[in-house]
């Protein structure tokens, strides 16, 4: 909630909430140089907005006291920082070699058949975005993926439709 005496950093299109600011200040306190909180700050915005809107870049830059171009450089380098809106649920399918051997391409086809999207795309209803991800560290558990923060193993084409239907 916005109150008069709380200093807010505003740009023409974007205002950081007091909570976001507090979280950023807390992240900054972990490091001798505020720049180190760049990724934390981007993730804080992403946690509330789902992605990092353009206006957040100069706002974060101001909190950290670094050029906006540097924040943008970081925001565009890391694959888990989203610079465009994503679906309500982000599906991250492991496409690394052990899951490949355990049939991840069939799983991908099943996801595409169910949702009508490929990697990097979002369903028309805004519910799902599909992304590839490096080995999730579950190589003994068959083909694996994350839906938001949940990790699912033993994936087969058959169980994909039911599994995705649990998310709405």
């Amino acid at each position: 909630m916005q109150t008069d005496n709380q200093a807010l950093i505003a740009t023409s299109r974007f205002t950081l909430s007091p909570q976001e600011r507090t979280d950023m200040e807390n992240a900054k306190s972990h490091y001798p140089d505020p720049r180190a909180a760049s990724i934390d700050a981007l993730k804080i915005v992403q946690a509330t907005h789902g992605y990092v809107p353009d206006g957040a870049i100069p706002a974060i830059a101001e909190v950290l006291g670094i050029p906006a171009a540097d924040v943008e450089g970081v925001a565009t380098f890391y694959s888990q920082i989203f610079r465009v809106p994503v679906g309500r649920h982000v599906v991250r399918l492991c496409d690394s070699m052990t899951c490949y051997i355990n049939g991840h391409e069939d799983v991908l086809a099943a996801i595409t058949a169910k949702l009508g999207i490929g990697y990097g795309e979002t369903t028309a209803d805004g519910l799902f975005t599909l992304l590839p991800v490096c080995c999730l560290g579950n190589c003994d558990k068959g083909s694996t993926m994350m839906v938001d923060d949940d990790t699912h193993g033993g994936l087969t084409a058959e169980i994909i439709p039911g599994l995705l239907e649990q998310y709405s």
Binding site: S96, M97, T98, C134, C135, G137, N138, C139, D140
Partner: peptide, 12 residues
Amino acid sequence: DEMEPNTWKDRL
């Protein structure tokens, strides 16, 4: 940072 394909020990 464990991300190398088929490297899954640090996680556990």
